[in-house]
Design a protein around this nucleic acid. Sequence first.
DNA 1: TGATTTTTTTAGATTTGTCTAAACATTTAG
DNA 2: CTAAATGTTTAGACAAATCTAAAAAAATCA
Lengths: 217, 217
Amino acid sequence: MQSFTEENYLKIIYHLSQNNDEAVQTNAIAERMQTKAASVSDMIKKLAEKQLINYKKYQGVKLTITGKLAAINIIRKHRLWEVFLVEKLNFKWDEVHDIAEDLEHIRSADLIERLDEFLSFPKSDPHGDPIPDKEGNFDSIPFRKLNKLKIGDEGLIMGVSEHSPPFLRHLEKLGLTLGRKVRITEIIDFDGSVELTVDQKKIIVSREVAKHILIRH
Amino acid sequence: MQSFTEENYLKIIYHLSQNNDEAVQTNAIAERMQTKAASVSDMIKKLAEKQLINYKKYQGVKLTITGKLAAINIIRKHRLWEVFLVEKLNFKWDEVHDIAEDLEHIRSADLIERLDEFLSFPKSDPHGDPIPDKEGNFDSIPFRKLNKLKIGDEGLIMGVSEHSPPFLRHLEKLGLTLGRKVRITEIIDFDGSVELTVDQKKIIVSREVAKHILIRH
DNA sequence: TGATTTTTTTAGATTTGTCTAAACATTTAG
DNA sequence: CTAAATGTTTAGACAAATCTAAAAAAATCA
């Protein structure tokens, strides 16, 4: 089994290789881990020795199958705990990330399976991110980013790709919460801001905000 | 804030000073921590520097007020998580200790207060141990150990002073669970075994087992 | 292409918690 | 009350995860 730190590296490498599909760079990991490239180099060697990543000097890293499964398992735990915190303990969606960051490292497979059952096998977390099953399979639902829609398009808010508390509180304030139906009424040429209706109300979000809102038809 | 290791030391020092009231010995801590006396000496210095314990060389240690509150807080978390695991996730009372041992180190005061509320402010954990409130106050209920009772005495099982899974499974098998009413029917001279009735049934427990069963009238 | 910049790795040090072996203090027993 | 036994501390080392500074490789660009 891995240490908390190793688990965090695996999780971050997994997230970084999601967008990209190429090998993940040392510096990218360092930035996300809030540490220095030198420390990342050291840890990379360790993970490579444990066969959790493939690594050739100066070439960046890729998760092995084992490493990927380990990463997905941590993400599964993180997201299940987030559901617990919101659904059972009444936390807000912007308050749960840091606590789940700690809870995700609790090592008991039995605990997680029972928690999953207690929560009635949720398919997604409070931010709309899919929860993998215990074999590591995700339900992948296709989505489009709000900034890619055209005037007149409509759909449901199914997730967000940014989890910072200020961003989430901003959405909350605007009534842009999961499951809400939105329709694009205008796109401002000048800066790409998007005007839309939610719940009978007209609101405007910047392009930057729109980029992080995921929409399904 | 303390590290996990420091928290474990505090908790163990607290438990060891419960029976005893005297200063806690280095060797006693080493045994409970599954480590060596030399390591304990090192850690003791660190905790003393942080004003969590009072320590004079070769004289053993005592928790300061701060140290005691820190220890009680960890115990509060441990016991609340145990209640969660048994009440909500349907674990058995002999399965929860190790998992709670990890969960007790999760650092979020808010989390614990909400968990407490979610569990309806339980007063004791699945082994009958009292749960301190957030100020560190215990409800102390007087009890007697089963091996101290006399023939004809009766009372309710209100707790156990031994938490090992084999012991707990033994009690479970005999039907000796929390809240059960028992009456002493005989005490065997030879070895101090106790014969008692629970639920209309006559059963026998050794003196060693009886010592760890706590009875209230 | 060759020089400069960026990225990555290595070398050596630091901190935390542990260890063994040896020294030192305290307690117990003859 | 000394001597042996027990308990505790110190000294020096180690592994994990980090750091800074410097070297090395790769990428960029003029």
